[in-house]
Simulated assay, not measured.
Amino acid sequence: MENLQIAIEKARASREEHTTQSLATSPLSVEHSWHSFPELAIDPAMLIAKRITTQKSNAQSSHYDMLRTRIRDQAKKNDWRRIAIVSAGPQVGKTTTLANLAFSFARLPYYKTMVFDFDLRRPSLQHLIGHNPSTQIDDVVAGKTPIEAHCRRIGDNLAFSLNAQHVANSAELLQSDGMSDFLSGVQETYDPELMLFDTPPLLAADDTRGFLSNVDAALLIVEAERTPIDQIDVVEQQLSELTNVLGVVLNKCNYPDPTSSANYAYY
C-alpha cells in the first residue's frame, strides 16, 4: 500500500504541475507488489455454469480469444493500456464478455491484466467470479482500505477489483481527481499490460460518460436482435467524442456449430 500511496502522491503532484513525465518502476518491485494480492481459488465448473469458458483454450473460448488478440494488437499499436467495456443499456452480456476476456488474457504468458468492476450502481462481476468481497473500491480510492486487502489475484497474470454493494455518489467518484490519481498510481505500481473496466450502461447514467476521460479506448457491447441500430449509432457517436472506439462486439448471437448442422452454440 505504501508504494501505491507514493505513486498516487506523484500522480497528484504531476497533475497539479501539468507535467507528463513517466516514472520508471523496477520489474522486481512490480512483481513483489503484484504478488501482494491474495490469490483467489476459482471453481472451473462454477465459471462454466455462468458462461465463463475461457480459463482454458477450447472451442468455446475461440471467439473470445480472437477478440483478445485484436484488442492486444490494437493496444500495442496505439500504446493503449486502459480499455472500458461499455454498453448502451443493461442485460446485453457486457460483464460476461469482460469476464471471458479477462480469463482469455490471463492465458497469455507475462501479460498482466487488472480488471475493475466500475459498474458501481449495480456491481455484478463478483457473482460471475464467485467471490464476495468485504471491501469497496471507494474506500480504496479514499485511502481507507489498502488495495492489497481489496484486489484478488488469479494465477500470475490476472487481478480483480470487485464490489459487493452499490457505491453512493458513483458518478462523482468516477469523475473525481482522486480516481484519476488512483489509476495513475495503480498503473505505476503494478505496471499491468492492460486494465479493463466494467462500466455502467452509457445511456442509463452519467457515470461512464464522466469516467471515459481516464481510459484510452472503449469497446462497445451490443445484443443481437435486441439493441436497436439507431441506438448503436448514437452510442458509438457519443463514445467517439469521449475516447477512442476500439470496436463493437455483437453478443448473444446464435451461429451454426461447424461440427453439426443441427446444433447451435452460444457465445
Rank of each mutant, 00 (worst) to 15 (best):
L242R: 14
L40D: 04
D43K: 11
L250S: 08
V245K: 13
D117T: 07
N163M: 03
L162N: 06
T69F: 10
P256Q: 12
I6Y: 04
S161K: 01
P44T: 07
L194K: 09
M1A: 06
H150L: 10
T208M: 06
A164H: 11
N78S: 08
V141T: 06
G155P: 02
Q237A: 12
Q21P: 00
V140F: 08
N263Q: 12
V222W: 00
A11D: 04
L23Y: 14
I129R: 04
T19H: 06
A7E: 05
P201F: 07
Y110K: 15
S170I: 06
Y266T: 11
R153V: 04
N214Y: 00
S14H: 00
S176P: 02
P192E: 07
A7Y: 04
A45F: 04
H63M: 07
V235H: 03
E236W: 00
Y190K: 01
P192N: 09
D181W: 10
G93W: 11
Q237M: 09
M46E: 10
A217F: 03
D191V: 03
A224L: 00
D233Q: 15
K94A: 09
N251V: 08
T54H: 09
A88V: 06
Q187T: 09
V215F: 04
N169H: 13
N251G: 05
P200M: 03
Y267G: 14
E225T: 15
N251T: 08
R107L: 06
I232W: 04
T199L: 12
G143Y: 07
E39L: 12
A11S: 14
D216P: 02
T95Q: 06
E148H: 12
S161V: 10
F37M: 11
I154T: 09
P228Y: 05
M1N: 06
V249F: 05
H35Q: 15
I232M: 13
D73S: 13
V186E: 01
M114Y: 02
R15P: 00
D230E: 15
V222I: 15
